[in-house]
Design a protein around this nucleic acid. Structure first.
Lengths: 223, 223
DNA sequence: GTCAAACCTGAATGGTGATTCATGTTTCGT
DNA sequence: ACGAAACATGAATCACCATTCAGGTTTGAC
């Protein structure tokens, strides 16, 4: 969620050969964007290749020029979303100087991304059966960034002595369900907020801060 | 997860008319059990009615004697799992006298249930598209129990002043991902533990305890 | 023992959708 | 301007499945 510090090589779909011509690249990108949208609204199984190609504005057969099959397309979509959400969090927290700042910025970026790309939740959850490898890679890559952030924060004495791996999974879980409840569900109910309500965000930050702070109360030293 | 204090009426599939005869009840129960297993291992879409009836040891047509269709069966399975996991947590934490005890017992029960019923995770996640109502009802009913537990703990001064709703969703999320990572994933990798490893459990408890404790350090007063 | 209600059954129906392929069109280096 | 590589296409193929139904079997109240 924050403490982002992406380093290791990309965890997924490496051998993507982009089409040689501009036209081909555009078509491929259109298919990918259409797939993200259709997978998110219809679900993997109701997302027929016909729907996707229609949304992309290309013929049915064209799909198979760019992807071996539906499953590979799905993997690619998960991979793309994963890369983008990590980049968003990483960018947001890169300017921060303290752990608290980084934490806030990272989570804000995560919720904003969630709001802008409702596909993230629905698609990752479906991956359980469609592509378990993709699902694990998604969660693992995010947690890895978090862990390394926590480690360096601990080295600086900004975080108390707690297993960083467990803490990272716990925090990611917290962010995930909060996002589901206040971003995804609210959106589906009609609204289109840019993130979670302020009081929820602040409560979550207070929760995290208290859980991680070294020992004496460091609460509320900012904002 | 804990602080369980279930009160309100059941949130889901209410009007279940049980078959009048013993034989019918047994058949229905067999179908339900088979469905849980097949949904969990194959996923909703690959879980054909044929597979389910075969696993249940009944003829294909028999299915439609007991359920209007596949979707209704799925709802029923979610409802059952939800009732059982809440009951397990509620029972486990009912004997506790302090919030900390209740917390530990509740989470332990949750992880144990997760270990014994891998279906819980996979089925609930699929509900996103198969039956969003069922999914929401599942999460909401668990969180509601948690919230009321937190509220009464706050009244007794055992929990600091934090929004109980936000805290509940955060904690449920933490438990969910920890369970996914250390129970579900480990199981799929071969092992069949009865819950999360001790050090993970303790780290999570320490995390939660610190996040919720009133103010002065209450850490590690037990165990 | 009788009979209606409750149960059970699996072949047939109807629909859907991923993937293939033979054929036409566009792009681009030379 | 030319030709080969890229790209585009949608009808046809093939497989899978939810659901229906018409007819048989079992149960249990009397």
């Amino acid at each position: 969620m924050n403490h982002v510090d992406i380093n290791r090589p990309e965890p997924l779909g490496p051998e993507v050969i982009l089409p040689p011509t501009k036209r081909g690249q555009r078509t491929r990108a259109n298919l990918l964007a259409a797939a993200e949208s259709v997978f998110a609204t219809s679900g993997y199984h109701d997302a027929s290749i016909v729907k996707i190609t229609e949304e992309a504005g290309v013929g049915l057969g064209t799909f198979y020029v760019y992807f071996p099959g539906k499953k590979e397309l799905f993997d690619q979509v998960v991979f793309d979303l994963n890369r983008r959400v990590r980049q968003a969090m990483s960018e947001a927290s890169s300017g921060a100087t303290t752990r608290l700042e980084a934490e806030r910025a990272g989570f804000r970026a995560f919720f904003a991304f969630t709001a802008a790309h409702p596909a993230l939740y629905s698609i990752v959850r479906q991956a359980e059966f469609v592509s378990p490898e993709a699902m694990r890679a998604h969660y693992t890559s995010i947690v890895d960034g978090y862990i390394s952030g926590l480690l360096s924060a601990q080295a600086k004495g900004e975080v108390r002595d707690i297993d960083p791996t467990v803490a990272s999974w716990a925090l990611m879980g917290a962010g995930e369900l909060i996002g589901m409840r206040w971003v995804q569900w609210e959106q589906q109910a009609g609204g289109r907020p840019e993130g979670v309500p302020d009081h929820v965000f602040e409560a979550l930050m207070s929760f995290i801060e208290t859980a991680l702070a070294p020992s004496a109360s460091v609460k509320e030293e900012s904002v």
